[in-house]
Design a protein around this nucleic acid. Structure first.
Lengths: 343, 343
DNA sequence: CTGAAAGCGCTTACAG
DNA sequence: CTGAAAGCGCTTACAG
C-alpha cells in the first residue's frame, strides 16, 4: 500500500500538511482565497485517498459499526442487516459484518475483532443463550463500553447498554388469541432450542394465552431455529399426533416459533401427503419477506425487521447513550392468512 | 477510546514494548523463559485488546475485505455473502459490507471507503452496467491495484484483476435445450434491464439456443432485476399473450432471467387466475435457497452461489494475483421441476 | 489564516 | 533474546 499521502498533496499544493488536512477533511476553519482549490486540485490530480486507519488513530472515532448475525443467508438476519446498512449510511458509518454460523466461539471472536478495530458501535443480532454462559462476552462488552463503545442487542437477555426488544411474548399471545377467535380449538407447538430466549418467550406467550382460555397444546416438539429444524420437528409432530390426510375433522393448529421453521414444517408435511390448511394448520413468527410468495400464505406475527435493524443503529448512535440501559420494544402484529384458514 | 495500550501491558510485565509486541503478535522470535507468560498474563489482567488501526498503520495489511452487493436482503446476494464470509474467515480476514440499493453513486462511494480503509481486497458482486459508464470506478480500481489492492468482480464486464464468471450464456442455452427436449414449443422471455450484462447474457443464450432450433420467442418483456420487476413484467406479458386459464392447449414457457423475477411473475399470474404450470410455464435462473420451499417448484439453472462468493475471496487472496486478469468460470446446471411440467 | 510539532498505538529494522 | 528509536499517515492544540 504505497499510496499517495497527505504530505504529497500538501507538497504539490505548496501548503503545509496541516492546511491540506484542514481543507480535505472539511474542518470548520476557512482557508484563504484559492488555497482550498489548490489543495483539492492537487488531491484530485494525485488520486489521493485518505488513509482511514491513520485518521482513526489520530481522531477518536473510526466510523465503523459492527454487526453480528447468526447467518446472513437467513432472511430474518438479512432483513435486519438491510435496515442496519441503511441507518449506518445515513449516520455515515460503515459496516463490519460477521455471520457466525451460530457458533458462539466465532461470535466471541467476531466481537473481539470489532473491538480491536475500534468500531464505534456493535449491534448483536441473533438470539443468545439465556443464562450466564457468556461472562467473557459481557466482561469484554463492559470494558468496551468503558472506553466509549456502544453495544445494542436485538432481542437478547444481555444487559449491555442498548436493546431492541421485539415483543415476542405478547406477540405470540396475541396470535394465540386470534387463532382461538378464528375458531381453532386444538393446538400444538414447534419450539426452538430451550436455551434461546426468543424461542422460549414466544412459546411461553403462546401457551400462556392458550392457558387463559383453558386450552393446552396437545403436543410440543422442538428443533433448531432453522428451516431444517422445523422440518424435522414437524415430522416428529406428525408422528406424535398421528396426523392423516382427509380426515374431515378440524385440523390441529401448530404454532412454529419462527417462520423459517414453519416453512420447513410445511415442506415436511407435504412430503407426508398432508395438506395445509386442510389437514393441519400452521402459524409462524417474523413475517420474513420470503413469505410474500409462499404457498400457502402463512399466518404469522409480523415484525418490522428492517426497522428493528435501523433502530438498533440509531439507539447505538444516540447521544444520551449512558450507563443506563436504553431499551425499546417493537410490537409485532398478527396476520392471519391461508395457513390457518378453517373450512 | 481510552483503552489499554501495549505500553501498559509492557510496563506491567516489566519488559519493553517491543518484546510485548513480539509475544502478543506471535512473531517468529522466541522470547526467553517466562517472559512470554508474564506478558500474556499482563495482557489478560489488563484486558488488552490490540488496536487494529494502529497495527494496520504499522504493518502493511489491514486484514479487511470489502464486499459490495446490490441488496443484502436479496437471497442471491445474501447467499454469495455467506460464501464470502466463510472464505474470509478461513483466510482470517474480516468483512466490510456495503449494500448499495442498486445505486451506482452509493456503490462508488462504498468502494472509495473500502479503499480508504485500505481493505486488502474488494469483491464486487451485483451486475454492473455494461459499457464505459464507470470510468471513475475503473480508474480508482487501477490505482488501488497499483498500491497492492486486489479486486474481484462477480459476473461483470469490468477488467480489474479477478473475475468469477457464472456461465450465464451457456447456462441459459442449456436450459432452452432442456425445455425443448421436454416438449416445449412456445416460448417467451422476461428479461432484465438492457444495461445489465448478466441479464443480457442470459437472455441471449436462451434466445440463441432457441434460434438454433428454428424457434423464436413469441414475446419479450423486461423489468427490474427484482421480484417486483418480475411481477410487473409478467402482467404485461400476460396481456400481450392474452393468457387465459384452462384453455387446454400447451402452455407457453416463459424464461425469467432470474429466480426472483420468476417468483414475482408467478405471483402476478396467480392473481390473474392463471395456474403454473397448467396455464403458463416458467423457468428462472440462480436456484436461490428460497426456491427449496416454493410452490410450484421452479425449474432453473442452479448456480453454486456460496461457492461463487468463496471463490471470489480465494481468487482475491491468491498469491499469483498479478497484472493479468485471473478469471474463473462457474457452470450452472439445469434443473427441471414442476413449473415447466407438461401434462 | 497557516505551520511546526507532538501524538494516536503499533511494528520492525537496527544495535547490543 | 531484548530494547531504544524511527516510522506508519493522519489530526489538532499551540504559536505565530
Amino acid at each position: 500500500m504505497v499510496a499517495v499521502r497527505l504530505q504529497d498533496v500538501a507538497a504539490r499544493a505548496g501548503v503545509s500538511q496541516a492546511t491540506a488536512s484542514r481543507v480535505l477533511n472539511g474542518s470548520a476553519r476557512v482557508p484563504g482565497e484559492g488555497v482550498a482549490d489548490r489543495v483539492r486540485a492537487a488531491a484530485r490530480e494525485l488520486g489521493y485517498v485518505p488513509n482511514a486507519q491513520a485518521q482513526a488513530l489520530a481522531r477518536a472515532s473510526t466510523g465503523l459499526l459492527g454487526l453480528v448475525v447468526h447467518d446472513i443467508a437467513d432472511p430474518y438476519f438479512s432483513s435486519i442487516a438491510r435496515g442496519v446498512q441503511a441507518a449506518a449510511r445515513t449516520a455515515r458509518k460503515h459496516m463490519l459484518l460477521a455471520s457466525t454460523d451460530r457458533d458462539f466461539d466465532i461470535e466471541r471472536e467476531a466481537v473481539s475483532t470489532f473491538i480491536a478495530h475500534r468500531a464505534d458501535a456493535i449491534v448483536l443480532a441473533g438470539s443468545r443463550q439465556s443464562g450466564d454462559l457468556d461472562l467473557d462476552l459481557e466482561a469484554e462488552f463492559a470494558r468496551y463500553r468503558d472506553n466509549g463503545g456502544r453495544v445494542v442487542v436485538i432481542g437478547q437477555p444481555l444487559a449491555c447498554g442498548g436493546a431492541v426488544e421485539p415483543e415476542n411474548h405478547s406477540g405470540a399471545a396475541n396470535l394465540a388469541d386470534a387463532l382461538v377467535a378464528a375458531g381453532h380449538t386444538q393446538f400444538a407447538v414447534v419450539g426452538g432450542p430451550g436455551s434461546i430466549r426468543t424461542a422460549v418467550d414466544r412459546r411461553n406467550g403462546f401457551v400462556e394465552a392458550l392457558g387463559r382460555r383453558g386450552l393446552t397444546p396437545l403436543v410440543e416438539v422442538s428443533g433448531d431455529f432453522t428451516r431444517d429444524g422445523g422440518y424435522s420437528a414437524a415430522r416428529r409432530l406428525a408422528g406424535a399426533l398421528e396426523l392423516r390426510a382427509d380426515t374431515g375433522t378440524t385440523p390441529v393448529c401448530v404454532f412454529a416459533v419462527t417462520d423459517v421453521m414453519a416453512i420447513g414444517a410445511i415442506a415436511a408435511w407435504r412430503e407426508l401427503g398432508l395438506s395445509v390448511p386442510r389437514d393441519v394448520c400452521v402459524a409462524g413468527f417474523d413475517d420474513i419477506p420470503t413469505l410474500r410468495d409462499h404457498t400457502p400464505s402463512l399466518s404469522t406475527v409480523a415484525l418490522p425487521l428492517e426497522h428493528i435493524g435501523a433502530r438498533a443503529v440509531e439507539l447505538a448512535l444516540c447521544r444520551d447513550f449512558g450507563p443506563d440501559d436504553l431499551r425499546e420494544s417493537v410490537p409485532g402484529s398478527v396476520v392471519l392468512r391461508d395457513s390457518t384458514r378453517l373450512p
